[in-house]
Every structure is written in C-alpha cells, then in structure tokens.
Simulated scan of single mutants.
Amino acid sequence: MLLYPNACLHFLRLACRRWSRLLLIITLVCPCFLILLFLGKLEEGFSYFLPLLISSPSHPSSTVALPHPLPPLLISPSNACSNSPFFLILVTSTPSHLNRRDAIRQSWGRLSTSLTLFLMGVPESQDEKAALVQEAGFHGDIIQAAFADTYRNLTVKTLVGLTWAVENCQNAKFLLKTDDDVFVNTPSLSDFLRVQKGPLYLGRIHWHVKPIRETYSRHYTSKDEYAGDYFPPYCSGTGYILSQEAAVLILQEQGRVPLLSLEDVYVGILASYAGIYPQHSARIAGSMMIPHQECCYRTMYTSHQVTPQGMSEAWAMLSKTEKEWCLGALLRCRISGTW
C-alpha cells in the first residue's frame, strides 16, 4: 500500500531537482544574455552570420559606374591625399556649422594617420557662399558640389564624398562617413582598423526597419522608391566605416534602385546588392549620446550629439598622460547613454 505514495514522493523529488537546476541555469544565463544584448555583443555575433544570407561580393572594376549623375564639384581639395592617409574621414556638414568644423579640426580631426574632409552643398546666402570659399582656401579640407544643401540631399552629399574618395584617395584603406556633431576616437579607431581585412562595412546596424509611408515625415519613402516591406540591415548614418574595396563595390550598384533621401538606408541597399554584409560594432554609438566622461570617450569609437566645446573637452580627456582605470566602461556608458 505504501509503494504508490513512495513512488509519487520519489517522482516529486526528482522533478524538484530538475526544476531547481533549470531555475539555476535560467538565473545565471538570463542576466548574461541581457547584458550581452544591451552591450550590442549579441548583435556583433549575429552580424557574422549575414554572409550566409547574402551572396559573395563581386570583384571591383577599375572604374566606378554612375547611373545617377552627380552634380559637378565646385570645391575639391585635389592634393589633400598626397600624404597617403591610412583612413579618410568624410564629415557631412552644412555651411553654417563653422564652429563645429573648427572644433573637429582642433580635436579628433588632427590625427596624423587620418585625413578629415567636410562635405557640403551650396547655401542660399551669398555671404555664406563667399565665407565657404574663403574657409576652403584657408583649410583645404572642403568638398563642395553644385546642389542645394538640404536634408533631402544628404544622399547626394554622401555619394559625392564617396566618389571623390575612390577617385582621389585610393591609398586610404578605409573611409569613415560621419556627421559634424559626432566625436570620433580616431586613435583607437585607427588601431582597430589596422587589423581589419577584406570588404568592410561596419557600424551600428539597424535591423528590420520598415519604410515610413506617411508623406508628412521627413523620412517618407514612397512605394516607387522602395517597394519592400522592410529595408535590408544597414549601418546608422551617424558613423559607418567602408573599406576602399567595399566603397567601390557599393558605388557600382547605383541604378539598381531609385535614389533615396535616406542616405544610410540607401548605402545599405547598395551594399546588399553588392553582396557586402554590414558588421555590427558595439563601440560605435549610432544615435546614442554617451556620458561626458573620459572612460566613455576612450571606450567608444563614436559618440553622437557632441557640442563644439564637448569636442575639445573630450579630446583633452583622450590626450591625458595619466589614464583613468575604465573597468566595465562599455556597459556603464551604454546604460547611462541617451538616445
């Protein structure tokens, strides 16, 4: 008569042990999973599987086809790459942002192994036009083409810069496209890029993004421009890196889709046609503004929404002789960052 209760009791004990082990595993694994997810390390790992979903890149030709005619250059620093910089930084700016450009010139844009150039269109004001010509003559770091300097022309601005780079700065192994309110840790980024190989398209990946169909939005994309329900994975336009080979392959794919005003999305679409997959980096902030602290600027490759004064202060932090001990900085800075 006691066999049945004893068997039930034994079964319950075994079940409790198994559930305790499972609960222990969940207790240990879930926090690690959440930490890796927040850091972006899971995205980094997942991005390595994208080559299984995208065809291999073709070999670049010696010339770049331009199905979308680009506006002619008005200002071109033709001898800017004479010193063969290791990597070229293309900063999208507007003519009125002189204080931002000067802050970059006096901080992270000074690294000797890189070259920083500013991409602009034509301002409406005659005074700004004259001031820009004078600025270009003094600094020799401005690329300007004959198009209106507006948000909707950001894609044209970027294509002008990339095309200029592959035609005039072929010795630069890598190109960084960024904005004039982004702080770039050029020393750390330079060290990182020195060990990179092959076609590279690196940044903070946006996954599974739907086109905005509301006409009132500045991010509006019509069905004629892009008919798909989702954009392919692409890197945030606040800062992404292309190897020279990847830039050539991407530019060759123009004309496969209509020109989009969403510059980072358009580059991502061209990359997918070229068979180049984006790679995610947890140290590229995307649209995140990290805390104004030494450890954060030393740990991250980029930070968004940095003021001109903040640029100078951040560069001074990086240049300090005595370095702060930055244990767990990536996690702390991303937790404290604002989007």
Score class of each variant (00 low, 15 high):
Leu2Lys: 08
Leu3Gln: 04
Tyr4Ile: 10
Asn6Arg: 09
His10Gln: 15
Leu14Ser: 13
Ala15Ser: 14
Ser20Pro: 00
Leu23Val: 08
Ile25Arg: 01
Ile26Asn: 06
Leu28Glu: 02
Leu34Met: 14
Phe38Ser: 13
Leu42Asp: 04
Tyr48Lys: 13
Leu53Glu: 13
Leu53Cys: 12
Leu53Ala: 15
Ile54Val: 15
Ser55Phe: 10
His59Gln: 02
Pro60Trp: 11
Thr63Ala: 14
Ala65Gly: 11
Leu66Gln: 15
Leu66Lys: 14
Ala80Lys: 05
Asn83Val: 11
Phe86Val: 04
Val91Cys: 05
Pro95Met: 05
Arg100Pro: 07
Arg105Glu: 00
Gln106Tyr: 08
Ser107Val: 00
Ser107Pro: 10
Trp108Leu: 10
Leu115Ser: 12
Leu117Gly: 11
Phe118Gly: 14
Leu119Gly: 06
Gly121Ser: 07
Val122Gln: 09
Pro123Lys: 13
Glu124Trp: 11
Ser125Asp: 15
Glu128Gln: 15
Lys129Gly: 14
Glu135Trp: 11
Gly140Ile: 05
Gly140Cys: 08
Gly140Asn: 06
Asp141Leu: 07
Ile142Gln: 06
Ala146Phe: 05
Phe147Thr: 04
Lys157Gln: 03
Gly161Trp: 05
Leu162Glu: 03
Leu162Pro: 13
Ala165Pro: 08
Glu167Ile: 00
Lys173Ser: 14
Leu175Gln: 08
Lys177Ser: 04
Lys177His: 10
Thr178Tyr: 09
Asp179His: 14
Phe183Glu: 12
Asn185Ile: 00
Thr186Asn: 04
Pro187Trp: 13
Ser188Met: 09
Leu189Gln: 09
Ser190Met: 03
Leu193Ile: 01
Gln196His: 04
Lys197Glu: 05
Lys197Cys: 01
Leu202Phe: 03
Ile205Ala: 12
His206Trp: 10
His206Ile: 04
Trp207Val: 01
Lys210Tyr: 05
Arg213Glu: 08
Glu214Cys: 01
Glu214Asn: 12
Ser217Leu: 05
Tyr220Ala: 09
Thr221Trp: 03
Ser222Asn: 06
Ala227Ile: 05
Phe231Ser: 15
Phe231Tyr: 15
Thr238Met: 13
Ile241Gly: 04
Ser243Gly: 07
Glu245His: 12
Leu249Gln: 07
Gly255Asn: 06
Arg256Thr: 00
Leu259Glu: 02
Glu263Gln: 13
Gly268Ser: 10
Ser272Thr: 02
Tyr273Trp: 12
Ile276Ala: 04
Ile276Leu: 08
Pro278Glu: 06
Ala282Cys: 06
Met288Arg: 14
Pro291Arg: 14
Cys295Phe: 02
Arg298Cys: 13
Thr302Tyr: 10
Thr307Cys: 03
Pro308Leu: 09
Pro308His: 02
Leu327Tyr: 01
Leu327His: 05
Gly328Ser: 01
Ala329Ser: 06
Cys333Gln: 01
Cys333Lys: 00
Ile335Phe: 06
Gly337Trp: 00
Gly337Arg: 00
